[in-house]
């Protein structure tokens, strides 16, 4: 079980209100990702849930019980820190055993759970090593191992992959997703990497300055961003946002169109422009097209081997049903 409810939770450090009143429900077994720009309060929110920070007001309920004042140990949550926070003077086995020993679980049961966790995480060969003798990915797995042996109600991850190199990050991302499939335990995952957010989440929570901008499944956020901030934040490369006359034609202050929803043609189309920089990724090519009458270049996604070059004339046609419209306040027009 692991249903977490935040009810009008706020957090202030002295005078600074980092989290304004915030409501959020995380259902049992869900994989929830908090994303947002740096300093928006993701870590703070996670630490409030963990009990490592006290809330300034509001209530946190875990499985229906008020846990607002409960110390971290009583919340049955396990946390994986960005720096791993392994105990450097203990072997991997002792590290993983630590929470069990603190809970007073008997030796045989401890060993059984450690062996299980080690098998799941491919750590069996490293149990007697010290953390200092492990690679970054292995340390990460030990940190996860220490979390899973406790059989917690929910896992909290604070940017667990940000210290790993790109290839390892993809591997660990899959492993964590697989772990979630297997354990079916609630997971809350903080990241500012939107690929991680899109690929892993059941539900994404987009934060800005402590405010929840939108909550929804990755595809909901992609298809129907509630406002300009979410529209610009989710999706890579970023959505093209166009102001002015072009937007007015659609009855909006701003319109947005994703690079993958623009058709390119050398002969005819809605907008006429010249090709600027192009980025070839093999499978895809991203063109930055300077359209007459628009300040910003428009990013367009085309197939891998489209024969367009710097300075060529092109015509762009946005797919009409994929145009997002936003009003004066930056909110989506349905």
């Amino acid at each position: 079980m692991g249903r977490i409810t935040l009810d009008k939770v706020t957090k202030r450090f002295g005078e600074v209100e980092v989290i304004p009143p915030l409501d959020l429900t995380i259902d049992d077994g869900e994989f929830v990702v908090f994303v947002g720009p740096s300093g928006c309060g993701k870590s703070t929110l996670l630490r409030l849930i963990a009990g490592l920070e006290d809330v300034s007001s509001g209530q946190i309920r875990i499985d229906g019980e008020d846990a607002t004042q409960a110390p971290p140990a009583k919340r049955k949550l396990a946390m994986v820190f960005q720096s791993y926070a392994l105990y450097p003077h203990m072997s991997v086995r002792k590290n993983i055993a630590f929470p069990l020993r603190m809970a007073g679980i008997d030796k045989a049961e401890q060993d059984r759970r450690i062996e299980n966790a080690a098998k799941v995480l491919n750590l069996t060969d490293y149990l007697e090593r010290r953390p200092g003798q492990l690679s970054g990915g292995q340390r990460q797995r030990v940190a996860i191992g220490r979390a899973i042996v406790r059989e917690p109600a929910a896992f909290l991850f604070d940017e667990p992959l940000s210290n790993l190199d790109a290839a390892l990050r993809v591997g660990m991302r899959l492993e964590i997703s697989e772990l979630h499939e297997r354990l079916k335990t609630t997971m809350i995952y903080v990241t500012h990497d939107q690929v991680e957010a899109m690929t892993m989440a059941d539900k994404i929570v987009v934060l800005r300055a402590g405010n929840i901008e939108q909550v929804g499944s990755p595809l909901t956020l992609y298809r129907e961003p509630r406002n300009l901030f979410v529209a610009g934040f989710i999706g890579s490369p970023k959505m093209n946002l166009i102001d002015g006359a072009e937007a007015a034609k659609h009855g909006a202050r701003t319109i947005g169109i994703r690079p993958e929803h623009i058709d390119v043609s050398p002969q005819a189309g809605t907008w006429e422009g010249t090709v600027g920089v192009s980025e070839h990724l093999g499978s895809d090519t991203f063109f930055h097209v300077h359209v007459d009458g628009m300040k910003e270049p428009i990013t367009v996604r085309a197939g891998g081997e489209v024969g367009l070059h710097h300075g060529d004339k092109v015509y762009l046609t946005p797919q009409p049903e994929r145009i997002h419209r936003f009003d004066d306040k930056g909110l989506r027009i349905a």
């Binding site: 971290p72 140990a73 946390m79 960005q82 926070a85």
Partner: peptide, 18 residues
Amino acid sequence: LDSEQLEAAEMDGAPGYS
């Protein structure tokens, strides 16, 4: 001492003297 280590121990259910 890395404060995250102490926080991790706290989450792991270790009381102050532990």
